[in-house]
Design a protein around this nucleic acid. Structure first.
Lengths: 341, 341
DNA sequence: GTGAAAGCGCTAACAA
DNA sequence: TTGTTAGCGCTTTCAC
């Protein structure tokens, strides 16, 4: 069923039917009712392609997830964020186009989706400390919102993020309060903003207690189980092993725990472990009962808000970047200056 | 830059330029070269919307991820599967449209994306034992591939799946071989095929050893950390607690481990735990060193293959369903009859 | 080997 | 309030 058939069926012009369906004020209430009923009965939906060709709007938002290589892992947290965003989009009549972008093709991917008129805006995931995509998107004039922050940039842009720095500062402080001095940080790739900010929070707490960081207790890599395992193994075999470990991902934490068990240490007695990522906080330290907090819903919430920001920006391109807070764990805002570091 | 501009720039008709770009045989080699060079230099990309309007092909594949309610968790394994599929699509010039579907709207969502001409085919995630979507998609004639299997169906359809039943049969057998008799199964929603098949594998091994299952040691729910925690707590407080636990998700397994620790048991000594899901196998039992195997790459591989099946089906709708194996852990095939159970 | 013209299904001036 | 008409940017007959 297309517009032509529907209008012939109703004995009206395509224009009138289109106007009735799109709630133009000039069409009479009676015909609008008649049209809407017929459309519902015939299960009519406007052909998206034709509609966007006519209006010039793609009615689609792109989510671009960068991976370093084709074998690289995809951060599972995207699923939750994207689920939130998706809900907002469908409510507003938008579709969500997902692209997995290998870093080397990234520029051409962005230029491509713009030239193809595939999307009205994009969501940027996994930003780097100094992310070239900001400048690129500004140049091609495509609206965007960053899921995360870009540290080394003077551009104005919209972003939404968890407060990684505060979270890791607090976690480190907690361990310090429990009397730990040798606290290891098993972190993600510190070229990525999220990991860099976590590192900053960790250092902040250490320095506030006049502790100089030990480079041998700080690692940075892709957050896999194997990485957690091997790193921990190495650290535990040193002459002065850490008494506490702060892990930046619960997947890596699986490996950390495996290595600790294998080395004959007891988690929570010999060694405290705190796992903290976007999805959860897991405190397993000082002999206390392990504590767990899920923050998945915050991630989904962040997705919803980010999508709202993006659609707003698309509707009113002139709109200034916004600032607001979502939860303790979430910071949402805009930035003209670099974030610390 | 659009076709009109490009053709004017070249002093050719739109037709010729279009033909040159799409490798039609009748255009001369010299003009083809000239056109392609100019197109590359001008960074020309055909407008997707116009193209699909003209050809009637959406050049887009839909991935529909069902959630029970808006607060429901999204299985993180989708990320990896989708990443694989995405690669195949872009190689073939297709886009990937992602939809999060709340169960209650599902039918209208499928009918909608078809009526809107939004996609040429869909990938079905999280199939249920008796999934009504098969019949629905057959009725509306939309090509699809199932990521997983549908147990109670006589329809012919293409699917790709991990061999959940064999995996859980083997895991259970391993525990039996270690001398366990009271083995708990902490499973996902058994209305979903994957969990049902895992249950079947578990029962298969028990029955082969003449052990009758204990309903109090079998649970089924959404695989969250909290669920793992609470269920384990309850089981451990019984008069005869399990000596081994088989967990269907590593997220739930976090909770299982938390509860075990809190109850004063030692994992791998007092209680053996095997975690097995699509992403990983985690054996932590019988005092042996815990063993870990990542199966993420298999999941991505499955995504690639599934996408290939789907595109093939779209190209040649008459094509019969296929059968092949991907890995030990993966079963890929087609089915006319129900899977066991 | 190349071009003119029609059409995909919709929206949006401009008329009436 | 409704209809006529002309596109949106491509592909695809059909004619040359």
């Amino acid at each position: 069923m297309n517009l032509k058939e529907l209008s012939e069926h109703l004995g009206l012009s395509q224009t009138t039917v289109s106007r009735a369906l799109n709630d133009y004020p000039e069409v009479s209430e009676s015909t609008r009712q008649r049209v809407k009923q017929a459309a519902a009965k015939g299960n009519y939906r406007p052909n998206m392609r034709a509609m966007s060709l006519a209006t010039g709007k793609a009615m689609t938002i792109g989510h671009v997830i960068p991976v370093e290589s084709s074998s690289d892992v995809v951060n599972p947290i995207f699923a939750e964020f994207v689920a939130g965003a998706s809900r907002t989009y469908s409510q507003r009549g938008y579709e969500l186009m997902l692209t997995i972008a290998e870093a080397k093709n990234e520029e051409s991917i962005y230029r491509g989706i713009v030239a193809k008129r595939a999307v009205d805006g994009v969501m940027l995931h996994s930003p780097k400390r100094d992310d070239p995509r900001l400048a690129l998107l500004d140049e091609i004039g495509l609206p965007f919102v960053v899921h995360g922050r870009v540290c080394d940039s003077n551009q104005q842009y919209n972003w939404i993020d968890m407060d990684n720095q505060a979270a890791f500062q607090q976690a480190t402080q907690l361990l310090l309060d429990l009397g730990h001095h040798r606290i290891a940080l098993i972190n993600g790739q510190e070229t990525l903003s999220f990991a860099w900010l976590r590192r900053l929070g960790y250092l902040e707490a250490l320095h506030a207690s006049n502790i100089t960081e030990d480079p041998e207790l700080m690692t940075s890599a892709d957050l896999t189980e194997t990485y957690g395992y091997q790193t921990t193994q190495k650290m535990l075999s040193r002459k002065s092993p850490p008494t506490a470990i702060l892990v930046s991902s619960y997947i890596a934490a699986l490996g950390v725990r495996r290595a600790i068990g294998q080395a004959g240490y007891r988690i929570g007695k010999d060694i405290s472990v705190i796992t903290h990522d976007d999805e959860l906080s897991y405190f397993d330290n000082g002999g206390a009962v392990p504590q767990f907090t899920s923050t998945r819903s915050s991630v989904r919430e962040a997705g919803i808000r980010a999508a709202e920001m993006l659609l707003q920006q698309i509707d009113k391109p002139s709109l200034a970047a916004q600032t607001q807070m979502v939860e303790t764990k979430l910071t949402l805002g805009s930035s003209t200056g670099p974030c610390p570091g």
